[in-house]
Simulated scan of single mutants.
Amino acid sequence: MINGAHVILYSHDAEADRAFLRDVLGQPHVDAGGGWLIVKLPPAEIAVHPTDAAQAHELYFLCDDVEGTVRELTARGVEFTEPVTDAGWGLLTRLRLPGGGEVGLYEARHQRATDL
């Protein structure tokens, strides 16, 4: 059966984004050959939200203390594109990848499936 997930981020500067995940976020990785990094993600969960708009997919990193994580990553040079906001179900923000893309970061207030 399914034993993992593989997330693909498309980037205008894939090498810089790989280096960011490896060096700034400190995620373990393997080299699949020729410097092509496959980065280990922390435990993950998936949610399906209804929409009447175009279907899209988003990536959020989870943390236990969003304000502290923002301070730590800002000190490492990470740019945040939105202030931390209260969405009711959690506190969230977005950070910019070196290639220009963005990913979310949030502190959940709900039970996390990663704890199962």
Rank of each mutant, 00 (worst) to 15 (best):
Ile2Phe: 01
Ile2Ser: 01
Ile2Trp: 00
Gly4Tyr: 15
His6Ala: 07
His6Gln: 08
Val7Leu: 13
Val7Ala: 01
Ile8Ala: 09
Leu9Asp: 03
His12Gln: 13
His12Asp: 13
His12Gly: 14
Asp13Lys: 01
Ala14Leu: 11
Glu15Cys: 02
Glu15Gly: 04
Ala16Glu: 01
Arg18Ser: 13
Phe20Pro: 11
Arg22Ser: 10
Asp23Ala: 00
Asp23Val: 04
Val24Pro: 01
Val24Asn: 02
Gly26Glu: 07
Pro28Asp: 12
Val30Gly: 10
Asp31Arg: 12
Ala32Asp: 00
Ala32Ile: 03
Gly33Trp: 09
Gly34Lys: 04
Gly34Trp: 06
Gly34His: 09
Trp36Val: 14
Trp36Leu: 14
Ile38Thr: 12
Ile38Asn: 08
Ile38Ala: 05
Val39Cys: 11
Val39Leu: 06
Lys40Ala: 10
Pro42Met: 04
Pro42Trp: 07
Pro43Met: 03
Pro43Ile: 13
Pro43Val: 08
Ala44Thr: 15
Glu45Lys: 08
Glu45His: 05
Val48Asn: 09
Val48Ser: 14
His49Glu: 09
Thr51Phe: 13
Ala56His: 03
Glu58Ala: 07
Glu58Leu: 09
Leu59His: 09
Phe61Val: 15
Leu62Phe: 15
Asp65Asn: 07
Asp65Cys: 11
Val66Ile: 10
Glu67His: 11
Gly68Glu: 06
Thr69Lys: 06
Thr69Ile: 05
Val70Trp: 04
Arg71Ser: 15
Arg71Gln: 15
Thr74Glu: 14
Thr74Asp: 06
Ala75Tyr: 04
Ala75Leu: 08
Gly77Trp: 07
Glu79Pro: 08
Phe80Pro: 00
Thr85Phe: 06
Asp86Pro: 13
Asp86Cys: 08
Ala87Pro: 08
Ala87Ile: 08
Trp89Ile: 10
Gly90Ala: 00
Gly90Val: 01
Thr93Val: 06
Arg94Cys: 04
Arg96His: 04
Arg96Met: 14
Leu97Met: 05
Gly99Val: 07
Gly101Cys: 02
Gly101Gln: 08
Glu102Gln: 05
Gly104Asp: 03
Leu105Pro: 03
Glu107Arg: 06
Glu107Gly: 03
Ala108Pro: 15
Ala108Leu: 11
His110Leu: 09
His110Ala: 10
His110Trp: 10
His110Arg: 14
His110Phe: 14
Gln111Trp: 08
Gln111Leu: 10
Arg112Met: 14
Arg112Tyr: 05
Arg112Ile: 07
Arg112Val: 11
Ala113Pro: 02
Asp115Pro: 07
Leu116Pro: 03
Leu116Arg: 14
